[in-house]
């Protein structure tokens, strides 16, 4: 874990309202893994007060990439940074995806900005595993495909690809792959993750053996376990919460209650 000030290299708008910020941070680039996150102080003083958590989108040589939309004050400030402006980064934080595990087919499922962690995961897996992806959103403009391989699109309003939610699309398509050893990596809104969790459990009850890791999110203050602000119910112990920042943000879908 480091606290380091790193310069912005460039900001690009990869599609309307979705920004990709490139930051030169060799120290973070060297250590961080897909699915981990960074807690970022967007201004020099204490306004806004808290750091903002961002999952690592990609790493290329000495550079790290963050993907975000303008959601509030913090992201508005971040989007106004110029080349050379320093950004104070705390990280790498949390536990990322376990992508070394034994599987033949990686399935990426992303809802909206849940697409953020996949470019880096793709970079790690691309020459080793077959990958199929499902990306979704309420409407066409919400679907993010940036550096996501071999994707099918679902939109709830039918403006692009499959009409319906991304988990319905996944359920329809996964039938063609059930003979393979599958590992699912998913990131998106809680409702999507819950639907996925139900879907995976249903398939496994039929005797399949899909493993599934989900990347969760929560409001948090510190990002490293001291504020205790980001609990998620432990599926194996009703008296215990995991902390999303420290025990996650990536969990095996069987280990948490969504």
């Amino acid at each position: 874990m480091l606290i380091i000030s790193s310069p912005v290299v460039e900001l690009s708008e990869i599609q309307k309202g979705i920004f990709l910020q490139k930051i030169k941070s060799p120290e973070i680039a060297k250590e961080i893994l897909p699915g981990q996150f960074l807690n970022i102080k967007v201004s020099e003083g204490f306004s806004p007060l808290l750091r903002r958590p961002f999952s690592i989108c990609d790493v290329e040589d000495d550079n790290i990439f963050l993907m975000f939309n303008i959601f509030g004050e913090g992201t508005r400030i971040l989007a106004c940074k110029h080349k050379g402006d320093l950004i104070n980064i705390l990280g790498p934080l949390g536990k990322g995806f376990n992508f070394d595990a034994d599987f033949d087919l990686a399935v990426f499922i992303a809802g909206g900005l849940g697409a953020a962690p996949f470019p880096f995961l793709f970079r790690k897996l691309k020459n080793q595993k077959n990958i199929i992806s499902f990306v979704g959103g309420k409407t066409k403009s919400e679907v993010i495909k940036y550096n996501i391989p071999n994707y099918s699109v679902a939109t709830e309003d039918g403006s692009e690809g499959f009409k319906g939610n991304v988990i319905e699309l996944f359920e329809q398509e996964i039938k063609n792959h059930l003979s393979k050893k599958i590992k699912i990596f998913a990131c998106g809104p809680n409702g999507m993750l819950k639907a996925l969790s139900d879907s995976v459990k249903k398939l496994n009850n039929f005797g399949y053996n899909l493993t599934c890791e989900i990347s969760t999110e929560s409001a948090m203050a510190c990002g490293f376990g001291i504020c205790q602000g980001c609990p998620i119910q432990d599926a194996n112990n009703p008296d215990h919460y995991h902390l999303i920042c420290k025990d996650g943000p990536v969990f095996n879908v069987n280990d948490v209650v969504l």
């Binding site: 204490f46 306004s47 806004p48 007060l49 808290l50 929560s218 409001a219 948090m220 203050a221 504020c227 205790q228 602000g229 980001c230 609990p231 998620i232 008296d239 215990h240 919460y241």
Partner: peptide, 25 residues
């Protein structure tokens, strides 16, 4: 005895401050 603490959401940022309701976890 151990305390599990409150359900999420436990943290809210406010102007120049934050609210917490950890529940003595």
């Amino acid at each position: 005895k151990p305390r599990k603490g409150n359900k999420p959401q436990r943290i809210v940022e406010t102007s120049a401050g934050m609210l917490n309701a950890i529940g003595l976890a």
